[in-house]
């Protein structure tokens, strides 16, 4: 194991997004803050509490997950694509780092960004609307797992993508719709039977539901199910991402 190389690339990935925190850290806080203020000030009076939780607090775990997923995914996907487009990938491929070390460094970089964004929105929720945190350690663990899972998904997309358009397409057509349909703003129990069942096929539903349980101790699905779903995604995405990197798919000619 080339520990120094591994640490160097991981730290590079982390410093890279911190260097542009106005693009990578602040926007999530602003949009989440806007959601909290707008929903809190307007809709909350018209929507009854769900599972005994006020509406603003109810949507917060979903907002946290939205930030975790988009940040983790975007970091790795754009880092990989950028390195390919700017010919930087060759700088790593010629060095005595293994493909697994390279792939894991990229995943960790994105996971750290997802995790930090999640924690910041969580703190924002606590600060603005006094959101309770029922199971703090579970929250941290769950945020870490989901950050890792979607950072790995970003690795897969970054490897496959050949242009920025590919990445934006994936976000606009799949990830954002799946997040919104994953119950950020509602309980799937409010849906008619058919749509409720469709929601159960959406993997993002489970990560939102799982965090809602960890933070608020409420949920539509048992935590064990959500946790298993998140763990399976983490393992599957990691294996595919690392596997593609190993094969040199669209990285080596």
């Amino acid at each position: 194991m080339n520990w120094i190389g591994f640490r160097t690339l991981t730290m590079r990935e982390i410093t890279r997004f911190f260097a542009v925190y106005r693009q990578t850290v602040i926007p999530g806080l602003i949009t989440s803050g806007l959601y909290i203020i707008i929903f809190g000030l307007t809709l909350q009076q018209r929507i009854t509490a769900i599972d005994g939780v006020s509406y603003t607090v109810y949507i917060l775990p979903g907002l946290i997950m939205m930030n975790v997923i988009t940040n983790a995914y975007n970091n790795t996907a754009s880092s990989i694509l950028q390195m390919k487009l700017l010919q930087q990938m060759q700088d790593m491929l010629i060095t005595p780092m293994s493909n697994i070390e390279l792939a894991l460094s990229f995943i960790i970089g994105g996971a750290v960004r997802g995790f930090i964004n999640g924690i910041l929105v969580l703190l924002l929720g606590i600060a603005i609307v006094g959101m309770p945190v029922e199971h703090p350690l579970t929250v941290l663990l769950f945020l870490l797992i989901v950050s890792w899972a979607f950072s790995s998904a970003g690795l897969i997309l970054g490897i496959i993508a050949e242009s920025w358009d590919n990445i934006a397409t994936m976000v606009n057509f799949f990830i954002t719709p799946l997040i919104f349909l994953g119950g950020v703003f509602y309980s799937i129990n409010m849906l008619p039977g058919f749509w409720r069942n469709v929601s159960l096929a959406n993997p993002i539903y489970y990560v939102i539901n799982g965090l809602r349980y960890a933070v608020l101790n409420v949920g539509d699905t048992p935590f064990s199910v959500s946790f298993s779903a998140a763990l399976i995604m983490t393992i599957v995405f990691t294996i595919i991402g690392v596997g593609l990197f190993q094969k040199g798919y669209r990285i080596k000619s």
């Binding site: 120094i4 190389g5 640490r7 160097t8 690339l9 700088d91 790593m92 780092m97």
Partner: peptide, 8 residues
Amino acid sequence: FQAGYYGI
């Protein structure tokens, strides 16, 4: 960084 990838 480049030196780091080489383990330096």
